[in-house]
Design a binder for these strands. Structure first.
Length: 281
DNA sequence: CTTTGGGCCTGGACGC
DNA sequence: TGCGTCCAGGCCCAAA
């Protein structure tokens, strides 16, 4: 479900709730999400104190005292909510797979109907070797991401730029929505070969990615289906999509009238892509 | 090596 | 209302 901006929104919501607190009790309502939880997961997590929460692409890294990391990926439908002490009005649903009671009485509830999400718990030293993380490209909101970096990665890729952008080894955190939005912002057609972009276009694209992600985070992420912040608040960015989900509608930039300025939906690598054939070349 | 397509799951929207 | 079909924000893995 969530792409980088939604995961970052969740990180920001979670950090003040968890930092410095101890995870008093961990209850698993099933032993597997997408993958089996590591052996002894609940026991090892209980009693741990949270020192910091980081994010890498779409991954949450909950850092624990004793140099361990609780890794969380939300998959497509994962949600985290915080229930206040004594607040059982929300109840525990059938898809609330992991429930962590915090030492202040609140509870962190991980809900994931489709179970594409997963968790892990490992020593911080193993971070760089972790099979899910060691192939990740730079996070676009970190200093390691730049136009020069992107140019270096794209020049070897014959695949379409939109498909390439979604490769987590190229841009960690990019997903289907923001790939379309970034390309629109950069005025580049999603079907272009990645290696065929001019330096100027790559530079525009790198800027567009950072800008779109930054604006989406400022808006609290996008609320499609059921993404929401841990507090329950909804994100707003979906109302600012320029192309995603707008097939047939007039382009916000050029679509004052006529067919040229209508948003098109195509399928690339099995995923929907939205773009303006007139603005994006 | 790279690239593509199917699979994993469930729920919601839509058409009849 | 009920049923079937299609679609969905991600990722892995097998096959070509």
């Amino acid at each position: 479900m969530p792409e980088l901006p939604e995961v970052e929104t969740i990180r920001r919501g979670l950090a003040p709730v968890l930092t410095g607190r101890t995870l008093a009790r961990v209850v698993l309502n099933r032993g597997d999400l997408r993958f089996p939880l590591p052996k002894g997961f609940a026991h090892a997590l209980s009693g741990a104190t949270v020192t910091r929460i980081d994010r890498l692409g779409k991954y949450l890294l909950v850092r624990l005292e004793g140099d361990r990391i609780w890794l969380i990926h939300l998959g497509m439908s994962g949600r985290i909510r915080i229930a206040d002490d004594g607040d059982d009005g929300i109840g525990i649903g059938v898809h609330d797979h992991v429930i962590v009671t915090i030492d202040d009485g609140r509870r962190l509830i991980f809900c994931d109907p489709r179970r594409f999400g997963f968790m892990d718990l490992f020593a911080a030293d193993d971070l760089v070797r972790h099979p899910r993380l060691n192939g990740l490209g730079p996070d676009p909101l970190s200093a390691t991401f730049s136009a020069a970096y992107l140019a270096g990665r794209l020049e070897k890729k014959a695949a379409a730029i939109k498909v390439t952008l979604m490769d987590q080894a190229v841009v960690a955190g990019m997903g289907n929505i923001y790939a379309s939005e970034s390309l629109f912002r950069a005025a580049i057609a999603p079907t272009r070969a990645a290696c065929g972009l001019a330096a100027k276009e790559v530079s525009r694209l790198a800027k567009a990615i950072v800008a779109v992600f930054t604006e989406a985070i400022d808006a609290g992420g996008s609320t499609l289906r059921d993404h929401r912040r841990p507090s329950g608040e909804l994100g707003e960015f979906q109302s600012r999509f320029a192309v995603y989900g707008r097939a047939g509608e007039p382009c916000l930039v050029c679509g004052a009238g006529g067919d040229a300025g209508r948003i098109q939906r195509i399928v690339q690598a099995g995923r929907a892509t939205y773009y303006c054939p007139s603005c994006q070349r």
